[in-house]
Structures are given as C-alpha cells and as structure tokens.
Design a protein around this nucleic acid. Structure first.
Lengths: 217, 217
DNA sequence: AGGTTTCGTTAGAGGCTATCACTCAATCTA
DNA sequence: TAGATTGAGTGATAGCCTCTAACGAAACCT
C-alpha cells in the first residue's frame, strides 16, 4: 500500500516494509476502535514483537498517527484525482468518489476531518496534499459550464480580495465560492452520516447527499 | 451550571454539587486538551482528592463523558430554543445562535458532532434532546413563508415516505428537506472552521457561513 | 446515642507510553 | 574474508492512566 520498494539497500527495504506493516495493523485498530484507542503496545504484540521495538520505526505515537494522516490525505488526493481524470468526469463524479472513499473507511475520513486535537499542527507536506485536493476540485469546476448558480455578491467580493489560498488558480471568485460550498456541503452530509447522526431517522443518506449535490449544480 | 439545588437531603445536595464541580474541571480539561486527554486522576488532583474518590460520583470515565455529552446537548437545545422564542426570530437567528454556541467552546461542539467512538451508543435521553433540537428547527421553518426553495422532487418524495423521525410534525416534505439541509450545511461550514481547515486560507469563515445561510433562504 | 449509610483513603492489579542499557545479527569496509 | 560498525530487538524500569477492593472515619437518620 506504500512505497515499500523505494529503498536501495536491503536494510532500507526491510525498514520500509516493517513500517507499512505497522501502519496496516494501526489502520485495522483504528477502523474497529477509533484512533484514540490506537496502542503501539497492542500492535507490537500482534506482530510478535516487544513493545519498545516499534520505537525504532516511529519516534512516538504521535508520529505514527501523523504518518497515518499523511497516508489518508494521499489516498484521498489520489482517488480524487483519479476520479477527475477519468473520461467524462464532472463535479458530481468527484462527489461520488469522495463519498465512496469516505464510506470505505469512516475512521480514515475522521482522521482528516474529525475532531481536532487542540495542540496538534499538521506538518507542511500534509497541507500541501490538502491544497492539491482543492486544486483538483477547482480544475473540475473551471472545466464546467460557466457558473449559473445563485448570486452571492457579498462573499464573492470578499473572495476576490482573499484568494491567496487558491494558489494562483485563474478561476473567478464565483468558482472559488462554488468549490468551497462543494467542500462544506459534502462534508456536512458525509460527516453527520458517518458519525451516525442519521441512524434513528429512516431516510436514505445517499439521497440526501445527491439532493445536496444537485442543488450545487 | 446544573441542577445543584434539586436534591432534598443535604447529602444529595452535596453529591450534586461535587458532581458539577467534577464536570466543570472536566470541561476545562476538554477545552484545552480535547476529550481524549480527559483524565479522572488529574481532575481528582485538581480538586485535592485522591484518584479513586471520583468513582463515588461517576462509575467510570465513559459515564462522565456521557454526562458531559448530555449537558452539551441540553445546552445546545436551550440556546436553540431561546433563540427561536426571542421576538422576531427567524431561521437565520437560529443559525447565528448555533454558530455562537459552537464558537464559544469548539470542543463542546465536537463532543456532539465530532469523531464518533465506534463502540459508543448514546443513551435514550440524549437522543430525545437531539430530536427536541430538530423539532425547534422544524417549527421555525414551518413558521416561515411557504418554502420557495429549489425543487428537489426526488428526495422530497422519499421523505414523504420516511418522515418517522419528524415525530408527527405536520410540516410538508419540502420543509423537512430544508431543515435537513440547514443542519448539514451549517454543520459543514462550522465543523471545518472549528477544526481549523480554513486557517491557512485567508477568507473570513463567518462570511462563508452567512453566504451558505443566504442560499438556504 | 447507636446503627447505618456514604465518603474518602491507601494499596494494588493491569494497561499504556516512552527511555535505557544491553545482546546479537546484519551490513559495510579494508 | 576478518574485523569494525551499524542497527534491530530485548528486558527492566519509570511514570502515567483506569478501575477494584478493603478499610477508617465522618455524616446522617431514628
């Protein structure tokens, strides 16, 4: 699932192999018990190792989780890009790719978009991947027919002056706005669905998702 | 902050008082370090007690957190209702009340709407408060002018058959739909803002919030 | 005033993260 | 190929944590 073969020397290859094996076990634990229950000790036991052995591969628990977050972002960016590059793909294709990816492993989704840990700050390369995702989305919207959505001059004017985050993308403010709405609305439905806030209610979350998507044009 | 004076006997009053004091310290810890870092031991020390003493008041860590979740829901339901009952209040007033409440204590918001713990299931009284919140929202939308929003026959028809969650509320499917969109969209912006996903970007999240609110009619 | 309930304590089991000193195998170098 | 070096894995240990159990003492009720 990762760059196991990158290293040249056998030691580096072995090291990378063990690192990904650790991460595989970590994902399994996270999927079944959530990230807060992730235990280096338990992973070591599962691998037939002694607890402290893992510290050869990850300096501490936080560094392991950071690596998992990075992989999650990378995975999302890849599926997003793949969806965008597939022939005839439009923004709705991106939305459904996002939803499929999220449902595939809800805890992976929440590792990115869930409750933040007050002290934690994501490293630079992670935010780079995040902006790569945004660029993919902006490209998709820019390729679409000119925006026919509702007029929201207030915020669009504000965006015209605060578009540094779009990283030089040529899209007009209205398009930036649509990308942000896409992001927040898809996340709104997905997050509540995956967190189980719809479970008591009998309606189909997938239909709410597509309804929101339709209103987004 | 809670029903400290409910008990009749002095013992019950004392008990309730200590319970709320424990919760106060817990909220403080959660606000600064997140719910996953909440430590009964640390709370006990802060109160000048020995660790196990707290188990007289909460059976275990989970029960304390459940109590906090209940209080959070209660607090949200109360501010929501207060906003709805204030004279001349409309749906946008509810939205701003929600936003104010969320920003007041982001970790409290995430205790309700954040990453779910796979095993955890909220007790019945908590889901009752959740539906009370939904009712307040439905009432507000029902009091508004008849829905003039975009037509989404697909989902509305589905809602006509799956409206058991609205608990007998007389609003038409289109209104139920608007309430769900309100919920998911407001949560979408708020959640990303509070989690810090907008921090690198220079735009004002408050303006995005009101822009989303405007499109919601 | 006496009996009962409840609070708070210490001791301790078992889990976790993380560090340290050590052994031994794998790798590199001369 | 022999010797030096690097790195993996170990057990011991410190210091957290949750939670249980047994015990003393205070508060309450009658």
């Amino acid at each position: 699932m990762a760059d196991t073969g990158t290293g040249t020397t056998p030691r580096e290859r072995y090291r990378a192999q063990v690192r990904t094996e650790i991460k595989d076990h970590a994902w399994q634990q996270i999927a079944t018990a959530g990230a807060s229950a992730l235990s280096l000790n338990a992973i070591a036991k599962q691998m037939g190792l002694s607890g402290p052995a893992l510290y050869r591969y990850f300096a501490n628990r936080d560094e392991l989780i950071t690596a998992l977050i990075r992989d999650a972002y990378r995975s999302l960016a890849d599926t997003f890009r793949a969806a965008a590059e597939s022939p005839g793909a439009d923004v709705t294709a991106l939305a459904h790719a996002l939803r499929g990816w999220a449902i595939e492993d809800p805890q992976r989704y929440f590792l990115i978009y869930g409750t933040p840990v007050p002290g934690y700050h994501a490293p630079d390369d992670v935010t780079t991947i995040a902006s790569e995702i945004m660029t993919t989305l902006l490209d998709a919207y820019a390729a679409e027919l000119p925006a026919v959505g509702p007029e929201t001059p207030q915020f669009d004017e504000h965006l015209a002056d605060h578009r540094q985050w779009a990283d030089g993308h040529p899209a007009p403010p209205a398009t930036l706005h649509r990308a942000l709405s896409f992001w927040t609305r898809m996340h709104g439905v997905l997050s509540l669905e995956l967190a189980g806030h719809f479970t008591g209610m009998e309606f189909d979350p997938a239909l709410l998702f597509t309804a929101e998507l339709d209103e987004l044009t």
